[in-house]
Design a protein around this nucleic acid. Structure first.
Lengths: 411, 411
DNA sequence: ACCGGTTTGTGATCCTCTCTTGCAAATGTC
DNA sequence: GACATTTGCAAGAGAGGATCACAAACCGGT
C-alpha cells in the first residue's frame, strides 16, 4: 500500500495528480457519478473537471455515458464511469479452511470469483503457491484474452512483512519465515507488483470501503477463527506499523492464568475467544473445525446449556478484550468478522455489558459493535483494494502505460 | 491538532501553502538552515525557495542572517531562522504533583518556564484554572510588552475531548465532565484558540519531535505515575481516535484476578504498573506520593529486597503489557516516561525478557524500549508543539494577520 | 595578488494548472 | 412556446513553480 509520507516539495503537477486521484477514488468508492456530482464532491470547477475527465477518457481509465433522466430541470450531466472491464486486479486469499481467487474491475466489481476448500493443517509453500497459481490461471482463462491485471493482492492468515511479502509466522499453515511474496511473483509471472498482507488488515480495508465500516474513519476489525487477528483503521488509513506487523490483537495478553498460545506466550486473547476456546467449553473436539462450530451454534440455537455457556464465556472474554482495545484506539466502530460475526447474535448483549463495565465511559459511548457485512470474502476483497491502491493514489502514472499496452496489443 | 483528511479538490494555492508549510516545519524541527539546505531538503528549486522565503521574511515569520563560514567552496548561503522571539506559544500543564507554564518561541526554544508543586488530591476546576491563569500572567509579564502568543496548549492528566476541551474523567483531580477548555479560554482572555489534550498524548508528540522518538514514525509513549497513559504515533501522526480519547493503555484489562481500578473496571494495567502497585508491594503507604517513590528507588539502589521485589513485579507486568501493545501497534520505539522512566534502569532486563516471551518474534525484533529524554517536561513541551501546529500546517494564514497585529500595535 | 573552479543568489521567461467569465446547449415548468 | 435552471464549453487571466543564463561570493593553488 503506497501511503507513505508525501514528499515535501510540491509542484503544480502535484495538484493535477491529486485531483485526478480524487476523481478516480470517488468513482471507485461511490460508483458512477455525473460530472456535476463530481464537481460538487471535489469542489473543483466545471472546467477543471472537464479537462481532467477528458484526460482520463483518452487514457481509457474512464468512460462517459449519456446522462440518465432524473426529472430535474436543467441540462443533464453525463455519467462518468470507471472502465471496469478493462482495469482489473487479481486478488488471492489463503485462509485456514480455503483458498480463494477473484478478479475485480475498477470500482470494486467482482468479475470472477472462486473459493475452494482446503484441508486444515500444515501445507508447504510450494503446494499452496501452486494451487493459487492454478486458481488464478483458471480465473484468467475465463476473462478476455490478453487482459492483464494492474496489480495483485494476497491475503494470508499470518504475520506478513509488507515490504517483501515474507510470511514471518502462520501457525495455521505451519509457516515460519516463508517467502510467499517472492514465490507467487515468480509463479504468476505477471509484470505487476504482488502485495501480500495479513487477512485481518485487508478485511478491515474491505469493510472500510465496501462494508460495515463505511463512512467511519476510526475502525477496529476483529477477525476470529482459530486465531484472532485485527485490522485497525486510524483516521481513514490502515495502521500497519513499522513493517506491516501491526494489528495482532489476538496476541495481547489478557489472562495470565490462561492457557499457552500457539505463539509461545500464555493467556493471549485468542486462547479465550478463538475457535478452540469455544469448542473446548462446549465439549466438542478441539480440531473439529467448521463442522464442530456449526454444531455448537446449532446447539445454542436449540438451547443446549453447554453450548450457551460456551458462547457466554467467549462473549465475556470478547467484551473484555474489546474494552481494552476501545480504550486504546477510541474507534467509531468495531466490526466482528469470521467466526465472531457468526456468534455475534448470541453474545451481543454480553459484549455490550462488558464494554459498559470495562471500557472508559467516554470512548465507550461513541463506539458501536456490529458484525461484518462482507463475511468470508472480506479479506479477499481487501486484497483487491490493496491492489487498486496505486492506481487510486496516482492515476496519472497509468495514463501513459495504458496507451503503451494498447499499442502492444494492436501491434 | 489540525491534521484532518485533506480536502479533495486541490488548487494551485494549495501548493504554495504546502511549500510554505514544509519550509516552516523543517525550520521548526531542525533549527536554522541555510537556503541551500532548504533546497536540498524540500526538493524545490532555488528560485522557488527564494520567493517563499521572501514572503516569510516580509511576513516577519522568518529572518535571514549572514551565512556562517563553513570552509567549503562556493558562494555562502544565508541562514534562515524562524523569528523565535516574536512568534511564541503558551503551554500549560496540569499534572498530578504540579502545575507548569512555559512560553516557547518558534523552533521550540523555551523562553519562559516555571513549574510549581501542587498538593495531590482533588481540586476544583476554578482553583486549578485560577492558578494556571496566574502562572501564565506572571510568565507573560517577564516577556516584552504586547507579546501575544499565537496559540495555547494545555496538557492535563485526564481523558479529554479535543474538540471542546471537556475533561471527561480525571481521577487524580476528581473531575468528571469538567469544561477545562472553556474556563481557561475565558480566564486567559487571549484572542487565540486554547487546545486541551491528554498529557500522555502530548508527551508522545514532544518525544517524537524533540526527544527519544526523534526520527521514528511509529512510536508508543507510556507515561506512568499513579495512572498510566499512553501516546501513540502512527506513521508520524498522533493516534487520537474519534474524539481524542485514544491511547488510554492504562485501562487495558490485563489481570482478571486483579484489583479494582479507579475507572470502575478491574485488573487494568495501571493497577499493576502504576505508582500504587509499586508502593504496595514495597510496603510503603499507597498515598506516600513522590517521597515514598523516592524511598523505594533509594531502597532498591541500596539492595533492599522488598524494594527490588516490588520493582521486579512492576517490571514483569510492564513487560507483559508492552508485549501486547507491541503486537497491536508494531512500533519502532517504546518510550517510558514519568515514573516508568525512573524505574527503567531497574527493570530494563526484565522488560526485555518479557517481550521475548510474550511478544511475537517479528514485531519484537524491530522494537526498542528506551526511557524518556525530556523527563517531566515532555507533556508541557508537547502542549507547545500542539499550539504550534496550526502555524506549521498553514503559515500562509499567519502572513496576513501578523501585519494586522503590527499595525494595531503601532496605532 | 590573481585566476579558475564551485556553489549559490537573482531575474526573466516559460510551462502547467486552475479559476473566472461569458455564452451556448439541454432539460423541465408554466 | 417562453422562461428558468442546470450544465458543458472555450478563451483569457492569475498563480506558482521550473528552467536557464548570469552575477556574486567563496575556496584553493600558483
Amino acid at each position: 500500500m503506497v501511503m507513505g509520507r508525501e514528499e515535501l516539495g510540491q509542484r503544480s503537477e502535484t495538484v493535477r495528480r491529486a485531483n485526478l486521484s480524487a476523481i478516480v477514488r470517488e468513482l471507485h468508492l461511490h460508483g458512477p457519478l455525473s460530472r456535476s456530482e463530481l464537481v460538487a464532491r471535489t469542489g473543483l470547477t466545471r472546467s477543471a473537471i472537464r479537462a481532467l475527465i477528458g484526460e482520463l477518457v483518452t487514457g481509457e481509465l474512464v468512460v462517459e455515458e449519456p446522462a440518465l433522466r432524473l426529472g430535474t430541470p436543467g441540462r443533464p450531466s453525463p455519467l462518468v464511469r470507471l472502465a471496469t472491464e478493462s482495469t482489473v486486479v487479481l486478488a488471492l486469499e489463503i485462509s485456514i479452511d480455503s483458498l480463494a481467487v477473484a478478479i475485480l474491475g475498477a470500482g470494486g466489481v467482482v468479475l470472477e470469483h472462486r473459493r475452494v476448500d482446503r484441508p486444515r493443517g500444515h501445507s508447504t509453500l510450494e503446494e499452496i503457491a501452486a494451487d493459487l497459481v492454478d486458481l488464478a490461471r483458471a480465473a484468467r482463462a475465463r476473462r478476455p484474452l490478453g487482459e492483464t491485471p494492474i496489480g495483485v493482492g494476497v491475503a494470508v492468515a499470518g504475520i506478513v512483512n509488507r515490504s517483501d511479502g515474507l510470511v514471518s509466522f502462520a501457525p495455521n499453515l505451519g509457516w515460519v519465515d516463508v517467502p510467499l511474496g517472492a514465490t507467487l511473483t515468480a509463479g504468476l509471472a505477471l509484470p505487476v507488483p504482488v502485495g501480500v498482507a495479513n487477512e485481518s488488515d485487508l478485511g478491515a480495508l474491505a469493510e472500510l470501503r465496501r462494508g460495515a465500516a463505511r463512512g467511519a474513519d476510526d475502525v477496529l476489525y476483529v477477525h476470529g477463527e482459530v486465531g484472532v487477528g485485527g485490522g485497525i483503521i486510524v483516521d481513514g488509513r490502515p495502521l500497519s506499523g513499522i513493517a506491516g506487523y501491526g494489528g495482532e490483537i489476538g496476541h495481547m495478553p489478557i489472562n495470565p492464568q490462561g492457557r499457552p498460545c500457539r505463539c509461545g506466550s500464555t493467556g493471549c486473547w485468542e486462547t479465550e475467544v478463538g475457535e478452540r476456546a469455544l469448542l473446548a467449553r462446549a465439549g466438542y473436539p478441539l480440531d473439529g473445525g467448521r463442522a464442530a462450530v456449526d454444531a455448537v451454534l446449532a446447539d445454542a440455537a436449540a438451547g443446549v446449556p453447554e453450548a450457551l455457556a460456551a458462547l457466554q464465556s467467549v462473549g465475556r472474554w470478547l467484551g473484555l478484550g474489546l474494552a481494552g482495545l476501545v480504550n486504546i484506539l477510541n474507534p467509531r466502530r468495531v466490526i466482528l468478522g469470521g467466526l465472531l460475526s457468526r456468534i455475534h447474535p448470541f453474545v451481543a448483549d454480553l459484549v455490550e455489558a462488558s464494554l459498559d463495565r470495562h471500557a472508559l465511559a467516554a470512548p465507550r459511548r461513541l463506539v458501536s459493535v456490529v458484525p461484518s457485512t462482507l463475511g468470508v470474502d472480506a479479506p479477499l476483497l481487501g486484497a483487491a483494494e490493496m491492489a487498486f491502491e496505486p492506481l487510486l493514489a496516482d492515476p496519472a502514472a497509468w495514463l501513459g502505460t495504458r496507451g503503451a499496452l494498447v499499442q502492444l496489443e494492436s501491434a
